[in-house]
Amino acid sequence: MNRGTVKFFNESKGYGFIKDDASGKEYFVHVTGLVDRVRENEEVTFDIEDGKKGQNAVNVRRA
């Protein structure tokens, strides 16, 4: 389980990006990968899964 911060999330379009605290990498997150509703600058935990265009954050929960 990774920890990070929601850098950007557009609720109307259903996607955003999460910045990993440990690596500094940014991961794409789609609304289907959310467990809890998230907002920008919120601390979250997440798993990483390979998607069509790279790695995605999934099982995203508020920390």
Rank of each mutant, 00 (worst) to 15 (best):
E43S: 09
N10F: 11
K52W: 01
F9R: 13
V35D: 14
G16K: 12
L34T: 05
R39C: 10
D20P: 02
G51A: 10
V38S: 04
Y15D: 01
V38R: 09
R37G: 11
G4M: 01
A22R: 12
V60S: 01
G54F: 04
Y15W: 10
I48E: 03
E49V: 11
N41D: 10
K53D: 07
D21F: 04
R3M: 10
R39E: 02
N56T: 09
R39K: 15
D36V: 10
V60F: 06
S12Q: 15
F17M: 07
G54K: 09
H30K: 13
N59D: 14
V60M: 07
V60T: 05
V38M: 05
F46W: 06
F9A: 05
I18M: 09
E40H: 12
D36S: 06
Y27D: 02
Y27F: 15
V58E: 08
T32C: 15
Y15R: 13
E42L: 14
N59E: 12
N10D: 11
S12D: 14
N59L: 06
R61I: 12
G4D: 00
T45L: 04
E49S: 09
F8Q: 10
K13Y: 05
G24K: 11
K7D: 00
G14W: 08
V31E: 01
E49N: 06
F46V: 02
D21M: 09
K52C: 13
N2I: 00
H30E: 07
T45Q: 08
D20R: 07
G14N: 07
E40S: 12
G16Q: 03
A57F: 12
E49T: 10
V60D: 00
K7V: 00
D36Y: 04
G14Y: 08
K7R: 14
A22M: 10
F28D: 01
F46G: 04
R61M: 11
G16N: 05
G51I: 01
G14Q: 06
G33F: 07
V38H: 02
F9G: 04
D21K: 13
V29D: 00
I18H: 04
S23D: 00
E11G: 15
S12I: 15
K53E: 06
R62G: 10
R3A: 14
Y27S: 03
S23N: 05
N59G: 11
D20G: 11
G51L: 03
A22Y: 01
V44S: 03
F28E: 00
I48F: 01
A57T: 03
R37P: 02
V35T: 13
A22E: 13
N2V: 05
S23I: 07
E43D: 09
G24E: 00
K53I: 08
K52T: 14
G14M: 05
E40A: 15
D36K: 08
V6R: 04
S23T: 10
Y27I: 02
N41H: 14
G4T: 09
Y27M: 04
L34S: 03
V31A: 02
F46K: 00
Q55R: 12
K19C: 07
N2P: 11
V6A: 06
E49H: 12
Q55S: 13
A63Y: 01
F46S: 00
K19P: 00
V35I: 15
K52P: 15
L34P: 04
T5R: 11
D47M: 13
G54Q: 04
N10E: 08
E42A: 14
N56A: 12
